[in-house]
Amino acid sequence: MEWLETFWATYSTLVLSIGTNVLLALSIYLTLACGLLTVANAAFMGIGAYTAALLSLHSGLPFYLSLMLGALLPAAVALLLGPPTLRLSGVYLAMATLAFGEIVRIFLLNAENLTGGALGLNGIPQHSQWFDVLVLVVAAIYLLLRCAGSRIGRTMVAICQDEVATELMGLNVRAYKLFAFVLGAGLAGLAGGLNAHFTFFISPNEYGFDRGVEILAMGVLGGTGSPWGAVIGGVLITLLPELLRGLGNYRPLINGVILIVIILYSPKGIWDLTRYLRRGGAAS
């Protein structure tokens, strides 16, 4: 088992990152599936990460409780932010959530007494074990699969296709959107909390615009047709840089090219592509 220990010593952060990135991809899947283009998930992740990390550093709360509070606080913030912003759609919603993300980042940067400012938080206990990540990721996938297969999922797809028609079918579109937004914020916060407890160190810039775009890329790349699409997207975006390591400095370039090719040839993401292949077999 020596090889396993060597492997784990080298790649544990990568493996755990796959887990947290899958959670992040699932969080953006929820809003994308309703046709909402929000980029606040990086900020929700940050709120979760700082909440859980600060609780671990300064309070005697058990790890799982800190983690849950790290998911609940961003969800509560989303509950307040949702009603005014979710009236917007398209690029306007993206702009509003982008601005919110910047507010969170700048707050984390300036509330030095609480967050350590630009220096970040150091020495966060490494509580996140592989089974914590595994259990939570499996639980999240299960939850969203049940959701997708139910009336809720059907309504979300309907909202994405025609909001007005869905509303006039007697369905409270705003409530569904808010549900997706809040649950997404909770999942992003959970990912942040887990992530903070295996990276040892966090700083405000990890939760800025770049991260927001990365999360969006996972959701779009994987596809919003099913939670499995988000899982694929999360895994791929985490692994691509590693798989392309041999390319040295050209790595980000090839990374971008792959994204462009997939979006061009399967605009609804990789999941849709696999569905097409399966259907193609059945239809012919």
Partner: peptide
Amino acid sequence: FKEMSLLENVLVAIGR
């Protein structure tokens, strides 16, 4: 809802 089946179209409304 063009990308749903006919059955799903009706199910969206029946859900309530």
